[in-house]
Design a protein around this nucleic acid. Structure first.
Length: 640
RNA sequence: GCCGGCAUAGCUCAACUGGCAGAGCAACGGAUUUGUAAUCCGUAGGUUUGGGGUUCGAUUCCCCAUGCCGGCUCCA
């Protein structure tokens, strides 16, 4: 009789082979109610599956990521059932769980409307109330194909034909609805209690624009209504932080038709922030032993032939232009120029490493439909750098880059990171030995900092392994900005070398790296991370001097000028308005410090500061406040 | 690029099924000289994204264009 080992290490014996549902019931009534599926020796299975041998068993509930995924997957089937009942001629295709919910793609004669969604959702509620059991059934391949063809479900038939022969074909049925699916699924529709259909969108069959456009319905589902409500609140919060909205409201940047989509205009207030970012960037890079380069925005197309961009990157490049009957290309990357600088003279092993950085503006062709605020643009500035080093310098260089990356991201207020390491893909250039050595160096550099990483086996570029660092923002969203990539390809293509100790020519290793990635995109992320409430060192206006009446204008201007002379960004508001009016306005504009100046302040040579949380400090001498502001700016404090 | 939705004053949004295009904020002018999140009064602001069509009449209905928004390989 099966002896089962539970996750806590305890054992349970059964007199006859139990189903997973029975196992859950044996553990506890509460668990039986919340059980969605089970895990047997690490394999997810339906609750009704029978365990007939000793095994490690865990019951899966919606409290775990796996359980939530099952719940969402089952909800997508529930939606497909509702759609088939309401629109019988719609063909089902695929419907997986995704990051924040699920979707299902249908082939239907017309697009679904928002009204359709409401109707589908209502039908789903009915199906939940009916609490239909969800049953798995294994079927012979040919019979399954015949069955789906008979039902008019040609996509499903196509999918079955492509399933490897050694895999079993399983169907899931609930009520009159049957779908091809690997499973597992929740035991019944009654378990799907909290869901919402979000939107309709077009999506190509298999994501290929050569294929037919299907109708995709996105939805989300959670364990209970409370979690669903929390998610919807999160979406509202994200919308409030939308950098496109804040960018307009705070007059930071614009993107205008007259200039072109995806081309960013930085307004004065946005440019102040960018300057603060760039100043910091220059300072840290100087300290980290980098030199700076400036290179052109376009080059003879031949350069891009040599670099391989014409062959491998054409889709992302703008069309070349003709200059004196020669083709020129606006740059999508900076690296070829840096290589030309390297190659401009003979290099010795004693010169290496070179660390060359450039805030290089590049232009890439993106489909008009994918442009999105500052996040997806056609012209952007990379905080790019290229390191040329010897093989035995890789680890040290990577380690230093990682250090600089984390220092930079931390300074901008990001505390949580996820590091991904991508290794050699099937199709790639370079010898095994160098790949192994480089990959080991990357791992070593990560380990040295005591950090953990997620390995993406075979996920590297064809020209070298890489480390990507993702940041988590204030509301838990993940963004990838930093990337550190080894390149065994470009040095080869440009045939760059250095003279070694042995007097022979050797190939240097090239490292591409960007910490913020694109300044535009990073700026967008910062806006959303801080919801526009920039820390002092980034704030476009760090302090606003507010007068009580016109009688205090003179002192207000003196205050402003003294603080400006100290290097702070300070403005005055001398308008003939009540102080509460001015405070409200500048508080809403997210100015970190408001310095109130009236009779007493003028008489004593001070200001009455109010911080961004409305805290009043009382009358303080101007010099004291100046030092406090300078300290806050100098330390790049992100607290509060 | 493709699919769907949307486009009204600088901004946020109204205008029932086709019937005189409006409000708040912002701007500007005036009064008020004010102590910690909105002082009052007034003025101006529009080819309702652009073009075409249906209609006695179009912000509203239809077609085209442009832009924006949400999506477009997270695999049964």
């Amino acid at each position: 009789m099966p002896r089962l080992t539970l996750p806590d290490g305890t054992h349970k014996e059964f007199s006859s082979p139990p189903t997973l549902a029975q196992v859950a019931a044996a553990i506890g009534a509460g668990l039986a109610r919340s059980a969605l599926a089970g895990k047997v020796d690490g394999r997810l299975m339906d609750l009704e599956s029978v365990i007939d041998a000793d095994a490690e068993v865990a019951i899966v509930t919606a409290a775990t990521p796996e359980g939530l995924e099952i719940l969402r997957h089952s909800t997508s089937h529930l939606m497909a059932q509702a759609v088939k009942e309401l629109f019988p001629t719609a063909q089902v295709t695929i419907g997986p769980a995704v990051a924040d919910g699920f979707y299902y793609d249908f082939d239907y004669e017309r697009p679904f409307t928002p009204e359709d969604l409401t109707a589908i959702e209502a039908r789903m509620e009915q199906l939940v109330a009916a609490d239909l059991p969800i049953r798995r059934q294994v079927m012979d391949r040919e019979a399954a194909i015949e069955r789906f063809v008979a039902m008019g479900e040609h996509y499903k038939a196509e999918i079955i034909r492509e399933i490897p022969a050694d895999q079993e074909i399983s169907l899931y049925g609930q009520g009159g609805f049957v779908d091809l699916c690997r499973g597992p699924h929740a035991p019944s529709t009654g378990r799907l209690k909290a869901f919402k259909l979000m939107r309709v969108a077009g999506a190509y069959w298999r994501g290929d624009s050569a294929n037919k456009m299907l109708q995709r319905i996105y939805g989300t589902a959670f364990a209970d209504k409370k979690a669903l409500a929390a998610y919807l609140t999160f979406l509202e919060e994200a919308a409030k932080r939308d950098h496109r909205r804040l960018g307009k409201e705070m007059d930071l940047f614009s993107i205008q038709d007259e200039a072109g989509g995806g081309l960013v205009l930085w307004h004065p207030m946005g440019a102040r922030i960018r300057q603060a970012i760039e100043d910091y960037w220059k300072q840290t890079h100087r300290e980290a032993g980098y030199e700076f380069l400036f290179t052109p925005h376009m080059a003879n197309l031949d350069l891009w032939r040599t670099s391989g961009h014409v062959d491998f990157y054409r889709e992302s490049m703008f069309n070349p232009m003709t200059v004196d009957e020669q083709a020129y290309q606006i740059r999508p990357m900076n690296c070829p120029f840096h290589i030309l600088v390297y190659r401009s003279r003979i290099r010795s092993h004693k010169d290496l490493p070179f660390r060359w950085a450039e805030l290089g503006t590049v232009y890439r062709y993106e489909l008009s439909g994918v442009l999105h605020g500052l996040f997806r643009v056609r012209g952007f500035t990379q905080d790019d750098a290229h390191i040329f080093c010897r093989e035995n310098q890789i680890e040290e260089e990577i380690s230093a880059i990682l250090e600089l990356t984390l220092q930079t991201l931390t300074t901008f207020g990001f505390k949580d990171f996820e590091i991904n390491l991508s290794t050699r893909p099937a199709k790639s250039v370079g010898e095994d030995a160098i790949w192994d050595k480089a990959t080991a160096a990357l791992k070593g550099a990560i380990a040295e900092r005591g950090l953990t990483f997620i390995e993406d086996v075979g996920g590297g570029a064809f020209y070298g392994p890489k480390i990507d660092v993702k940041i988590l923002d204030a509301i838990g969203r993940k963004w990838q900005c930093s990337t550190i990539q080894l390149d065994f390809n470009l040095p080869e293509r440009f045939d760059i070398t250095y003279i070694g100790e042995d007097g022979a020519r050797h190939r240097p290793i090239m490292i591409h790296r960007a910490l913020m990635g694109s300044l535009e995109r990073f700026f967008g992320i910062l806006i959303e991370h801080y919801a526009g409430h920039f820390p002092l060192w980034l704030a476009p206006v760090q302090a606003m001097v507010l007068t009580i009446t016109e009688a205090h204008n003179e002192w207000a201007i003196q205050v402003r000028d003294q603080l400006r002379d100290a290097g702070l960004r300070v403005e005055t508001d001398l308008r003939n308005q009540k102080i509460s009016y001015k405070i409200r306005e500048h508080a809403m504009r997210r100015t970190p410090w408001l310095l109130i100046v009236g009779e007493r302040e003028q008489a004593e040579g001070g200001v009455s500061p109010r911080d961004r949380h409305g805290k009043e400090l009382g009358l303080v001498p101007l010099a004291t406040m100046r030092e406090r502001l300078l300290e806050e700016a100098r330390t790049r404090a992100v607290g509060q």
